[in-house]
């Protein structure tokens, strides 16, 4: 996977990442490369540490072992100020959008601009309305987030994530809990923004359909390790039973249906 030609255009480079929470190993020796301009999916069962990878990429947590490089900078060695500057280049869409409940949609999108740029009010207005228009919600600018449906809130949050024209956008479960229409519109947005703005997107998801629809490349993480990686077609054709179980959505297989326990007979007989 370390093709010399591609390395020039690698925007995110993870090397030998390990991460423990308490005694539990969440990530175990993860190495990944994300090419500029691609939509990359991070897949895996729930609670497998996909969101942890996002947090490592944004520098919210520092890895005990391994390195994270984004755009040629090593995250774990950044000073606080450099990390702040770096985060302006990265947009994040959190799981439920995480809009600020006491600000209007307009102010939500305007917040990063007001905080990090010296633009005057009329310019900010133009940029914000542009971003809201891109997600189709210019008309909702003056609404409060509580008046939006889940899908609309997610789209406003997306507008906020791209407000500072980042090079990299991270999506944490962008479609979870949405109706099919909203899912379709978010998917279309992720794809079209990626091409139109020249972004690189990393999508954390546990949905196989989503991966097929969106991703140029996918990493499948199971049990804290990379079980497989490749284009969606390569994954679908993967011979490992673990990958097949996940792709086909089978309840039992290498990932067992039963939580590890003593045999049923023993347990029942041991009942008082």
């Amino acid at each position: 996977m370390t093709d010399k030609q591609q390395q020039m255009d690698t925007i995110v480079k993870l090397r030998n990442l390990s991460f423990q929470r308490g005694k539990r190993t969440v990530l175990d020796d993860i190495s990944m490369d994300v090419q500029r301009g691609q939509v990359v999916a991070l897949m895996g069962p729930s609670g497998v540490g996909k969101s942890t990878i996002l947090k490592l990429i944004t520098g919210q947590i520092t890895p005990p072992q391994g390195t994270v490089e984004v755009d040629g900078d090593c995250i774990s060695q950044m000073t606080v100020n450099n990390l702040k500057r770096f985060r302006r280049k990265v947009g994040v869409l959190l799981q439920n959008g995480a809009l600020f409940t006491d600000l209007t949609c307009f102010e939500n999108v305007a917040l990063p601009l007001r905080e990090h740029t010296q633009l005057n009010d009329s310019l900010i207005r133009r940029v914000v309305l542009g971003k809201l228009h891109a997600v189709g919600l210019r008309g909702a600018a003056e609404l409060m987030p509580r008046h939006l449906s889940g899908g609309m809130a997610r789209r406003v949050a997306l507008a906020r994530a791209i407000a500072l024209d980042p090079a990299l956008v991270l999506y944490d479960e962008p479609l979870s809990g949405l109706d099919p229409i909203s899912q379709a519109s978010i998917m279309r947005l992720i794809r079209s923004l990626n091409t139109a703005l020249g972004l690189t997107s990393i999508i954390v998801t546990h949905s196989v359909d989503e991966m097929h629809e969106l991703a140029d490349y996918a990493y499948l993480i199971i049990g804290g390790r990379i079980a497989a990686h490749g284009t969606p077609e390569q994954l679908a054709a993967h011979e490992s039973p673990l990958v097949q179980q996940f792709i086909k959505g089978q309840p039992d297989g290498p990932v067992p249906f039963h939580f590890p326990a003593a045999s049923l007979a023993d347990d029942l007989l041991a009942m008082p």
């Binding site: 919210q60 439920n96 600020f100 990063p112």
Partner: peptide, 17 residues
């Protein structure tokens, strides 16, 4: 607490605020 639960604090942090 609710801002934390709904990831609004994380969102701020990620916006470098």
């Amino acid at each position: 607490g609710l801002m934390k639960a709904t990831e609004q604090l994380d969102a701020l942090d990620l916006m470098a605020i």
